[in-house]
């Protein structure tokens, strides 16, 4: 079974984020694998293994030919990667990104496409479903358990009330929530092997996409302003000397919660 995992390379979330001159997130520095995507990579490796073989291919769109995050996922065990990097993609929105990813995924011809429910940096949360629509695939989002048997996938999908058992024929796009599997740490051998794994780098033209459909122009939206939010006043600080719980009780009493 061949699995494609959509992975995003993002600015390190631990560092303070900043906006560029176009008021979009500054992605000019080093990018790393979005933590959210490690679950999809792990799930793909486990599912390919359970199916008795097959390849896990990463698909990613990133500026400046960035591969650091891809190397992390390759070190976990993915076989190869397709990277789309092109100046024409600067300022792309979720739909523009989906057009690019869908075109790249089509080349890989997978049985299953996995993605996170949303990225950590942009968190639009619609890209995987847009990809599915563009490919004509079904989609099952917010999966907390995924099993493939033959040409069918069975998913436990998070709902407001609990979860649904959902079944879909392959090929299908499935988005996985965090915590569904425990992502493995790349081994030293894995890290060494990742250095020589193939990363195919493509442009918008390679994918046959009209540049007007992607990038800032294709996004058909404008950020009109970015301003500081009204700051919340910080309140009373108590250092616990063994009786801080009494202050909390008092506070809750004032609010009539107790």
């Amino acid at each position: 079974m061949n699995v494609v995992v959509c992975v995003k390379q993002i600015p390190d979330p631990a560092a303070p984020p900043s906006l560029d001159t176009a008021n979009t997130l500054d992605r000019s520095g080093k990018l790393i694998l979005d933590d959210s995507d490690a679950y999809g990579v792990e799930m793909a490796l486990q599912l390919a293994d359970a199916a008795g073989g097959g390849e896990v291919t990463l698909v990613s769109m990133a500026p400046n030919g960035e591969v650091s995050g891809l190397r992390t996922a390759l070190a976990m065990g993915a076989a190869k990667a397709i990277l789309i990097s092109d100046d024409a993609l600067v300022g792309s929105d979720a739909l523009g990104t989906a057009k690019v990813l869908a075109a790249a995924i089509r080349r890989a011809g997978p049985d299953l496409v996995l993605a996170a429910t949303e990225s950590t940096d942009g968190y639009t949360g619609t890209t995987p479903v847009q990809v599915a629509e563009l490919l004509g695939f079904p989609s099952v989002t917010f999966a907390k358990k995924v099993e493939v048997s033959g040409s069918t996938v069975k998913v436990e999908r998070q709902t407001e009330a609990g979860f649904d058992e959902v079944e879909s024929p392959l090929p299908v796009v499935v988005t996985v929530t965090a915590g569904v599997v425990e992502p493995r740490y790349p081994s030293f051998k894995g890290i060494m092997a990742a250095k020589s794994k193939p990363v195919e780098t493509l442009t918008v033209a390679d994918l046959g996409i009209d540049p007007a459909q992607v990038g800032a122009a294709g996004a058909r939206q404008a950020i009109t302003s970015v301003t500081a939010a009204e700051a919340r006043q910080s309140g009373e600080i108590v250092v616990d000397e063994g009786d801080a719980h009494e202050r909390i009780i008092q506070f809750l009493e004032q609010l009539k919660v107790l």
Binding site: D93, A94, L95, A98, Y123, T124, G125, T126, T127, P128, V129, Q130, A132, E133, L134, S139, T141, F142, R157, Q158, T159, E160, A219, R220, Q221
Partner: peptide
Amino acid sequence: PATYDGRDVAGRLSARLDRPVLTN
């Protein structure tokens, strides 16, 4: 609404109509 099903409808509708979507 930004819910499990709402986001599915939004993504599908966006791609079907070729219209961008603003979320969050």
